[in-house]
Nucleic acid binder design. Structure first.
Lengths: 202, 202
DNA sequence: GTCTATAGGGTGATAGAC
DNA sequence: GTCTATCACCCTATAGAC
């Protein structure tokens, strides 16, 4: 995980992995089968706990705000407490091919469904106000997943506080999306866009 | 840009680049100097227009809500209209070293300052309510930047609509962050966390 | 289980012919 | 400006000795 996160999947050789593990190439292949199988294993070590917790959360008899918060905390726990593992998970997934890729996509889709379902449940109970549940689900993952990029430069981040921050933004914020811009703002935006359009065509 | 975004920077050979450009390696090196200089050039082609537009936006005599929206539209225009270029920009920046890396970091920092300044301006005028401007700036980039990951699978996205969505979430949402959780929610969260803690220790 | 040897093919970069 | 030849090295994976 450390080597893949530091030098990238393609940028890390099996010799380096063996050196870090205290094994020569041959012995390493005896255990991992292939470099790609090792990458798949790393992805499973993020996805499997995430899905196990999401399944528990989905079965809880709680409101959808609490369900979303717990899903948020699960995801952020991985991101903040296993940064190398999550970096590989979110950054190198495209190098999975064939069956590895299919399994990974299915697990990701399953987790996204847990979040989407919680949001839809909240929409029906009135706890979440949104006219575009799909875009709201995407915004949920924008907020959470990109955290892996800057997390290392901001020590002291706490799972529960960050989950509270992200969920507050989402649950309160999306309710405002349908409000049309007021006339003054519309006017300023129109002017500004025309100035920028001039720059782009120049 | 296409090859780097499809196969990664490390996963693309200079021969492949030459083949795509209709040149042999020798001729390609005559133009690009090195593989890393090509990567730096790709980064500049995103950052330079972004900074030019941000400078114009900062000089406009408009409210901070409009300023943030225009910054959001600038960034989303790059993300939605130049996906390959932005993929490399957001995904491969770590492979820049030395002077290339320093210049890139400085440009990124400059753009982040434009956004941070607009948010701070809004905080002082009362248009933006937040007790943690730094975390709000990070949330702005979470929402925008991660869009490059799923943008290709969602055709028909429009810059102005998505900017309106993201900014509405942020500007309305962050005002809610300071509100403490109500007792019922706190109770549900406590119970849920204890269930998950049992899973983790098992 | 762990090793070395080997296969077969890449890599980035440069020198020098044309 | 563009090419080929070359340098020195790295790659994933497997075979077979021990």
């Amino acid at each position: 995980m450390r080597l893949f996160s530091e030098n990238g999947y393609t940028g890390t050789g099996v010799s380096e992995l063996g050196e870090a593990a205290g094994l020569a190439r041959g012995a390493l292949y005896y255990y991992i089968g292939s470099k790609e199988a090792l990458l798949a294993e790393i992805h499973d070590r993020v996805m499997d706990p995430l899905l196990a917790e999401a399944k528990l959360i989905a079965a809880m008899d709680i409101g959808s705000r609490a369900r979303l918060r717990l899903l948020s905390e699960s995801l952020l726990w991985q991101i903040l407490h296993r940064p190398d593992n999550v970096w590989v998970f979110l950054h190198e997934y495209r190098h999975l091919e064939g069956e590895h890729r299919a399994q990974f996509r299915e697990k990701r889709r399953a987790f996204e469904t847990y979040v989407g379902t919680a949001l839809e449940e909240g929409r029906q109970s009135g706890e979440v106000v949104t006219s575009d549940p799909d875009l709201t689900t995407l915004a949920f993952f924008n907020l959470h997943n990109y955290t892996y990029q800057w997390q290392a430069g901001h020590p002291g981040l706490e799972v529960e506080k960050l989950a509270s921050f992200y969920c507050a933004i989402l649950l309160r914020g999306i309710g405002a999306v349908e409000q049309p811009d007021d006339p003054e703002l519309r006017d300023e935006l129109t002017k500004g866009r025309s100035v920028l359009a001039a720059l782009r065509s120049a």
